[in-house]
């Protein structure tokens, strides 16, 4: 990576390495090791049965999927391959990257699916308040997860 050298990251993250740039003598650059998740859970605007996904073009879900060993996707709806391009605004990730897909309308709540539903800020505030202590968090789990 160009730039970056000289921050405290080099002290806090010994796995970040500073090396001489082999292509530009007298210049140092930073190396950052790849992140290789065992599993990625991502939510798509739409999907086809072969795992091809329509994803938010402003987010990094396609990159995450391509980095991960196993990719489990949920989608607002499962459509035919002919319907996918018109299912919303986004970018298409081919099914070869995806291990499994399930239809889960509302699966991103309380966060958003661009063009489908907005972020539920009240629900997030409720979660933040509930997460302050174990008793209220357990009540939140009982209501929204186990209920």
């Amino acid at each position: 990576m160009a730039g970056h050298v000289g921050s405290d990251y080099e002290r806090l993250r010994p796995d970040f390495r500073v090396i001489p740039n082999p292509y530009a003598p007298g210049e140092r650059v930073l190396l950052v090791p790849p992140i290789r998740p065992d599993l990625a859970l991502i939510h798509a605007i739409a999907a086809t049965a072969d795992g091809t996904l329509l994803l938010d073009h402003m987010e990094d879900d396609a990159l995450l999927a391509q980095a991960s060993r196993v990719v489990v996707a949920s989608a607002e709806r499962v459509v035919t391959p002919a319907e996918l391009p018109a299912a919303g605004e986004g970018v298409v990730l081919q099914g070869i990257h995806v291990t499994a897909v399930a239809e889960a309308p509302g699966g991103a709540r309380p966060t958003f699916v661009r063009g489908v539903y907005p972020v539920d800020a009240d629900a997030i505030r409720e979660y933040v308040a509930a997460a302050r202590d174990d008793a209220s968090f357990k009540a939140w789990l009982d209501r929204f997860v186990y209920g």
Binding site: A2, G3, V5, G6, S7, D8, G26, E27, R28
Partner: peptide
Amino acid sequence: DVVTSPGSTPPDVVR
């Protein structure tokens, strides 16, 4: 307390 982004850097850094 922690330098995420330094204001200045040595001359052999791409900046």
